[in-house]
Design a protein around this nucleic acid. Structure first.
Length: 559
RNA sequence: GGGCCCGUAGCCUAGUCUGGACAAGGCGACAGCCUUCGGAGCUGUAGAUCGGGGGUUCAAAUCCCUCCGGGUCCGCCA
């Protein structure tokens, strides 16, 4: 609905430019808060071309617009010193309610894009539990996948499991030395063991580690089986953690796949002219970058980069690629893109997110210094349970746990997703656990309130006339914001910025709370008003539920 | 040292890509709001040299230059 309004504004402005015989690319359309529904700063930019005052140009444009021919624009006004303000048609806005009620999916989903996106995210090494840095990656990736799906793309999410390499050889050695208890959660046990192994190894173990890596490369079945059971043990734990936050991957791709299927030599071949041997190792040189990329060690074994190139080559056959990577991969990702270009493979789009650090400094799996995702979830869940127990004492244990679980999941997801990926996060566990600081419970509460109103009402039959009584300011504001859901979704999808959408959902909840306070629904002045307001609440509920689901948590009917 | 990223009220963040109308929220502080639908809510007040300086522009948090803080990368690690 808002998109149609915007389209009409665009057309009107383009027509005006045609009449003035001007060719300007940027129509200067913006969404000013509270001033107008849409505005254009066109008078400023074309006044210098025409040599006239912005107000003269602006008035001229406005005067030529024929409101009678327009469906979604109800009014146009020039405003000093050079703005053209557009106002949306309120009748159309009210009609939108019926569109939502009849076909909510159609209202909220954008048209099919006929493009498949392979979105790789999380991809943490199976050397321990996920920490809150990995969580940022996983949540950006998972939320973006949900946004892109609703925006009409076909999305396949992948976890690239780095089950080879030096750190895995070291881990294998550690397991041989210390053994596995197989008692608790695999990722946490492996994490402890990995830390212990790092502390334990010295130069005398170097030979063993190299030998294990050689066996990986040769495809030694015994060693690979041994390794595989360790990797799976750890990864089961990781997946369990992810599922606690509603994160799942469509595919898990093991790095070893590309060694076993002998895909590495193809990559080497296609890069041949740019390769160079150096002390027995194999390097890729770039003309426009002075940092080379090592593909093979001098003992002939492959390094991560080579296997990753094979992975991307394979991925690219399935669709266009989107990778979520931490800021430490910035340089590497540039090299990756350049290498793929040399291989004549499409470049992946790469979203870089900055680090999550603790007040005492950076996190390290090797040193065992981090806050695990499980620890965070446990703590927030406990805080949520205490909160729910205090507020809803009459409810039973099972219900409280269920609600605490969904509130905690929302709180964590929203907390991570609301901030722009490029911002570094200094993680404050106290704030993360304080539900008053969190946006998600606020959002969920607005939904529960809407549900409560509807539960206490009987909508009865619907006719189209009653809706016209919906003309108070709060209702109109709420309607306008609801109408923007598809365009907000589109923006977040196009820019690949989940936090844009998170911001919108918060505003929507906030707007509903204002409506709730000021506009009585069940006690409305007359039957028509009551019905109209109930319809609005119902439309809000449908849109909000979808919005919350896009953010990857649950909308509780009561909490 | 070089590259990249960040710096917006006491604290956390949006806005920076695409320059426009009073810099927008949340937490905390202070003052209010339950004879109406759930107070995990709402209203109001105080609080901002948009890191500093220069430049471009009719217009700069936003673009350019420079300096200062902080982070990160510059592995035959992943």
């Amino acid at each position: 609905m808002f998109l149609k309004f915007k389209k009409e504004v665009t057309e009107v402005l383009e027509d005006s430019l045609n009449e003035l015989d001007l060719d300007v690319d940027d129509l200067g359309i913006e969404e000013p808060r509270d001033i107008a529904d849409l505005a254009s700063t066109l008078p400023f930019s074309i006044s210098s071309i025409l040599g006239e005052d912005p107000s003269v140009v602006g008035e001229k444009i406005v005067a030529k617009i024929d409101l009678g021919e327009l469906k979604y624009i109800s009014d146009v006004k020039f405003k000093e010193p050079g703005y053209i303000n557009f106002y949306v048609d309120e009748g159309k806005l009210r009609q939108m309610i019926f569109d939502i009620l009849e076909e909510p999916k159609k209202f909220m989903e954008l048209e099919d894009k006929d493009e498949k996106i392979i979105l790789e995210h999380t991809s943490a090494n199976p050397t321990g539990p996920l920490h809150i840095g990995h969580l940022r990656n996983a949540l950006i990736g998972d939320t973006l996948a949900r946004i892109l799906e609703r925006a009409g793309y076909s999305v396949e999410t992948q976890y690239y499991l780095n089950d080879l390499g030096r750190q895995m050889a070291l881990l294998l050695l550690g397991v041989r030395k210390f053994g596995l208890q197989k008692s608790g959660k695999g990722d946490h046990e492996i994490g402890e063991l990995y830390k212990r192994s790092n502390n334990f190894v010295d130069d005398s173990d170097e030979g063993d580690i190299e030998l294990i890596m050689q066996k990986f490369e040769q495809g030694d079945e015994d060693v690979l089986d041994e390794l595989d059971s360790i990797v799976n043990y750890c990864f089961e734990g990781i997946q369990k953690t992810l599922s606690r936050l509603n994160i799942k991957h469509d595919q898990v791709v093991k790095e070893s796949k590309f060694v076993e299927e002998n895909r590495l030599s193809e990559v080497i071949d296609s890069l041949e002219p740019n390769l160079e041997e150096s002390d027995g190792s194999l390097q890729l040189n770039f003309q426009d970058m002075d940092k080379e990329l090592v593909l093979k060690r001098s003992d002939g074994t492959s390094v991560y980069a080579l296997r990753d190139l094979a992975y991307h080559k394979w991925k690219n056959k399935r669709g266009s690629m989107l990778d979520i990577l931490g800021a430490d991969h910035k340089l590497y990702s540039k090299q990756l893109v350049k290498a793929l270009e040399l291989m004549d493979i499409d470049s992946p789009e790469i979203i870089i997110f900055e680090f999550v650090s603790l007040p005492e400094g950076g996190m390290s799996k090797r040193k065992g210094q981090f806050i695990s995702a499980d620890e965070l979830i446990d703590k927030v869940q406990k805080a949520a349970f205490d909160e729910v127990s205090g507020k809803r004492q009459e409810k039973n244990q099972e219900w409280k746990e269920k609600i605490a679980d969904l509130v905690a999941r929302g709180a964590i997801r929203y907390d991570f997703i609301k901030v722009a990926p490029k911002k570094p996060i200094k993680f404050n566990i106290k704030k993360a656990v304080d539900l008053n600081e969190q946006g998600a419970p606020f959002i969920q509460y607005s939904f529960a309130r809407a549900t409560s109103i509807l539960d206490n009402s009987d909508l009865g039959s619907i006719s189209t006339q009653e809706i016209d009584s919906l003309d108070n300011e709060r209702s109109k504001e709420l309607l306008k914001l609801i109408s923007k859901m598809p365009s907000e979704l589109k923006k977040a999808a196009e820019k690949k910025r989940p936090h844009y959408f998170a911001e919108y959902v918060f505003e929507l909840a906030s707007k509903f709370n204002e409506f709730y306070r000021d506009v009585p629904v069940l006690q409305a002045g007359n039957a028509n008003e009551k019905k109209a307001r109930l319809l609005l609440v119902r439309a809000f509920k449908l849109v909000m539920e979808e919005a919350i689901n896009i953010l990857g948590f649950e909308a509780p009917e009561e909490m």
